[in-house]
């Protein structure tokens, strides 16, 4: 599903964000990407959705090398990858329904199929009764669930989550994790960057640790730290 080989990213200001990182994520896996701030987690996710281009090395999704994609191919790549963000990135002037439907409209999905699919994912994330509300009328946890619904509506093969529980209280965070576990159970590969030790320790999934751009640990069913 996802392959990185000697992946290196050096920014124009000389900062080495990723240094010779090699890893493989199989289809259907749930992987935590952990490490302190500045370890390179977000850079790694940005390379996967081709928001950044590697300085050297290889990154491939579904056997497609991302380094040489044309503009249009980048758009098509992203249709297979769902992304959720710490700050949700919802459009404030659109309702919950419109925010989710938007992801289908921009890829020119068939008009007939949009409504049932949006309601389907809103039901999955438990927001069917809030479809007509604006994001400002929702709690943080609900906004993150809208973000998740938007990421899932297009049936992505891979879901990237960048600190999805960063702004949420423990109970709400756990609700989001339950949802992600359900999504993963249905076959979607998930790579989640997080600082949340409790969640990582409780979920017992594969943990990849980065530190100053280097891959320092890759443990199946691991904890947030080597000791846990």
């Amino acid at each position: 599903m996802l392959i990185a080989k000697n992946l290196t990213k050096i920014y124009n200001n000389g900062v080495v964000a990723l240094d010779q990182v090699s890893l493989t994520v199989q289809k259907g896996e749930f992987v935590f990407l952990v490490g302190p701030s500045g370890a390179g987690k977000t850079t790694f996710l940005n390379l996967v959705i081709r928001q950044e281009v590697p300085s050297s090395g290889l990154i491939a999704v579904n056997r497609q090398n991302l380094a040489h994609l044309k503009k249009k191919e980048i758009a098509f790549l992203r249709r297979n990858i769902g992304v959720i963000f710490q700050d949700y990135k919802l459009l404030p002037q659109k309702t919950v329904y419109e925010n989710v439907a938007f992801a289908l409209e921009v890829i020119e999905a068939k008009a007939r199929s949009i409504k049932p699919r949006v309601y389907e994912v809103l039901e999955l994330v438990g927001l069917l009764n809030k479809a007509n509300l604006l994001p400002s009328e929702l709690s943080g946890g609900e906004q993150q669930r809208v973000c998740l619904a938007r990421a899932l509506v297009n049936r992505p093969l891979l879901l990237l989550a960048d600190e999805p529980t960063g702004n949420l209280d423990p109970d709400t965070s756990w609700g989001i994790m339950e949802l992600l576990r359900e999504v993963n159970k249905r076959g979607t590969t998930i790579v989640m960057a997080t600082h949340n030790q409790q969640i990582v320790d409780r979920m017992r999934r594969r943990v990849i640790a980065l530190d100053r751009g280097k891959l320092v640990r890759d443990t199946p069913k691991g904890g947030y730290t080597l000791e846990t």
Binding site: I49, K72, R79, K89, A103, V106, N154
Partner: peptide, 10 residues
């Protein structure tokens, strides 16, 4: 940015 991230073409 959101349009681009969910796969809209330019």
């Amino acid at each position: 940015e959101i349009m681009k991230l969910v796969g809209a073409t330019d």
